[in-house]
């Protein structure tokens, strides 16, 4: 009886694993929007399949044994306890499987580390608890702003109903053009933070005093949301990242608007002095 339960459980787990592979569901990584994200997504599915097969293999044998080789069925114990051949086989096969897994991973790692010749460069600085952005190079150079959580405190304290993008909305989004290689330079002002946008497949820690970089090329226009992914104190859960990807011409308009707005701001600043 009990073993049936176990077998059912195994079945349920296998099913759950299988369902987790359904594309675009909330059981899996978010819909990939860049090459790296796509490669990662596929790699994950591929590795999951391998693991599932091994899992079913190992526990198939084990649960067969659990079902059949039990004392209550009058089964008498054998007395073997050693076999070098078998040991070698089950050492070598996992090694081969690992090589198969590592191969695509290596290619992607090399690609994801290559931040050379970007179309534009943006510097992101982590603060407790918001992000600062400076467009350093490429179209939009000179733009710079802070980006803070815009979800009202009342929603957090359950005094207002929560919106769809609860905790994932900011006052100023990072805007980038579609199809361009964007290099993100990261640093932090106080403690560690991490800049993470799942759909674009990047996550990189921001380290005070040091510089790290990473890159992405967005496939399609849209709004992609992420969060700070390194514990940074009290409001670590409240410093989201929102990237808006625009068509090239829209982006140009956005840049113009930003630059003139900041020109106005600076001149006001000067007059006030």
């Amino acid at each position: 009886m009990r073993s049936k339960l176990v077998a059912t459980l195994a079945g349920v787990l296998a099913l759950a694993m299988y369902s987790s592979m359904a594309v675009g569901s909330k059981y899996n990584l978010p819909e990939p929007q860049s090459i790296i994200a796509r490669e990662t997504y596929d790699m994950h599915i591929w590795v999951m399949w391998i693991c599932l097969v091994i899992f079913i293999g190992v526990f198939g044998v084990m649960f067969y044994s659990v079902l059949k080789h039990r004392k209550s069925l009058g089964y008498k114990a054998a007395n073997f306890h050693h076999s070098t051949t078998v040991e070698i086989i089950w050492t070598v096969i996992p090694c081969i499987i690992l090589v198969v897994m590592a191969f695509p991973a290596t290619k992607t790692v090399i690609a994801m580390k290559d931040t050379s010749s970007p179309d534009m460069t943006i510097k992101a600085t982590g603060y407790q608890w918001m992000w600062g952005y400076d467009y350093l190079q490429g179209e939009g150079e000179g733009i710079s702003f802070f980006s803070k959580l815009s979800t009202p405190r009342a929603q957090v304290q359950n005094k207002e109903p929560k919106g769809e993008n609860y905790l994932l909305e900011v006052d100023n989004r990072v805007v980038v053009p579609v199809g361009k290689k964007v290099r993100i330079i990261l640093t932090a002002n106080d403690v560690l933070h991490a800049w993470w946008v799942p759909a674009l497949g990047i996550k990189q820690d921001a380290i005070p005093g040091f510089i790290r970089d990473t890159w992405f090329t967005a496939d399609a226009p849209g709004i992609y949301r992420g969060q700070c992914a390194e514990l940074c104190g009290k409001d670590h859960g409240f410093m989201p990242i929102v990237v808006e990807v625009m068509e090239a011409d829209e982006y140009t308009k956005w840049v113009a608007a930003q630059l003139s707005a900041s020109a106005v701001k600076t001149s006001m600043h000067v007059e006030n002095k």
Binding site: V61, S65, V66, H69, K71, A77, A78, F80, W90
Partner: peptide, 17 residues
């Protein structure tokens, strides 16, 4: 993995309770 396989092989054709 070797450990897991060895445990499985220990159970195999045992007389389990």
């Amino acid at each position: 993995g070797v450990k897991v396989f060895n445990w499985t092989a220990t159970m195999w054709r045992g007389s389990m309770t």
